[in-house]
């Protein structure tokens, strides 16, 4: 590539970075100062952070967010592992249908999924009419594409049938071999897709707004309520949300780059 295109590539990347970082940076600065009406903000302060971390509602919403993110991921990973084990080992013909079912949530997204679950269960007096059950059900579905892809790609990368046969020859049953041999081999793929699912659920606003009762709030809802009340406090909530999102993305990137460098090593032999 010539020098000219090199230069223009840097310019494009720099412009995109500025566009993406500017709103974040402005809000971080806003959260750290008392007054920003001129060009230069005045009066450095951590008071906003102090006030949200002593706010019981904030801590509750944080705790609830963690719970409603982790439970559905745990359920969906387990269900998908069982389903994909049977399908790939015994019934490869129906894999197509499993794939379609797993990809539908990707197109209907949160808004349509949440209202259609509302139609079916909102007036039900039974267990399924419970708002928490509806929310967890919707969350299990909305993360299906990510979990499916993670497990499926992991299974494709290793030679699953050969590993299973080898384990069978050594006297293990297939299902035991699956959990003892296959799952440890694809665990990094499962971790990455689970983390992607965490960041998806962590950023959810529409499903929880439509489905949950008022006493269950996630951090997005807390941010929305705070921002109606005080923009300086909301900016501190914003920074906490952003840091958590970035932390998850950073972990994903590290795992991915580590596993790809391992692959390089293996093929390099």
């Amino acid at each position: 590539m010539n020098k000219h295109s090199h230069k223009s590539a840097y310019i494009v990347m720099t412009l995109v970075i500025i566009w993406l970082v500017l709103p974040l940076l402005a809000t971080i600065i806003y959260s750290l100062f008392e007054d920003w009406t001129g060009i230069i903000p005045k009066g450095f302060t951590l008071a906003n952070y102090e006030s949200i971390f002593t706010n019981e509602d904030f801590l509750t919403s944080m705790y609830q967010t963690v719970l409603i993110c982790i439970i559905p991921i745990f359920i969906t990973v387990l269900i998908m592992l069982l389903a994909l084990f049977v399908v790939t080992v015994y019934f490869p013909k129906i894999e197509k249908y499993v794939q379609i079912l797993c990809m539908i949530p990707y197109t209907i997204q949160g808004i349509i999924l949440s209202v259609s679950i509302l139609i079916l269960y909102a007036n039900s007096e039974s267990f399924f009419g419970n708002r928490m059950v509806m929310l967890l059900g919707a969350y299990c579905i909305i993360i299906l594409p990510y979990i499916y892809n993670g497990i499926r790609n992991g299974m494709r990368a290793i030679n699953m049938n050969m590993l299973l046969e080898a384990a069978e020859m050594l006297g293990e049953s297939k299902i035991k071999a699956f959990f003892k041999v296959i799952v440890p081999n694809i665990i990094s793929g499962i971790t990455v897709s689970s983390l992607l699912a965490v960041s998806l659920l962590f950023g959810d606003y529409v499903i929880i707004r439509n489905l949950s009762s008022t006493d269950v709030n996630n951090m997005q809802q807390f941010l929305y309520q705070t921002m109606k009340r005080s923009s300086t406090e909301a900016s501190a909530v914003f920074v906490v949300i952003m840091l958590i999102t970035f932390l998850i993305a950073a972990i994903v990137l590290t795992i991915q780059s580590r596993s790809s460098s391992e692959k390089l090593k293996e093929t390099g032999k």
């Binding site: 990347m13 970075i17 402005a26 809000t27 950023g203 997005q220 941010l223 914003f238 993305a249 990137l253």
Partner: peptide
């Protein structure tokens, strides 16, 4: 390039309420 990729990855989950709020500040 690595920095560019990192910024893309970090901001790809940045939408919804936080995004609207950041633009209101800006």
């Amino acid at each position: 390039k690595r920095f560019f990729m990192a910024v893309l990855n970090m901001t790809s989950n940045f939408a919804g309420v936080p995004l609207a709020f950041a633009y209101m500040i800006l």
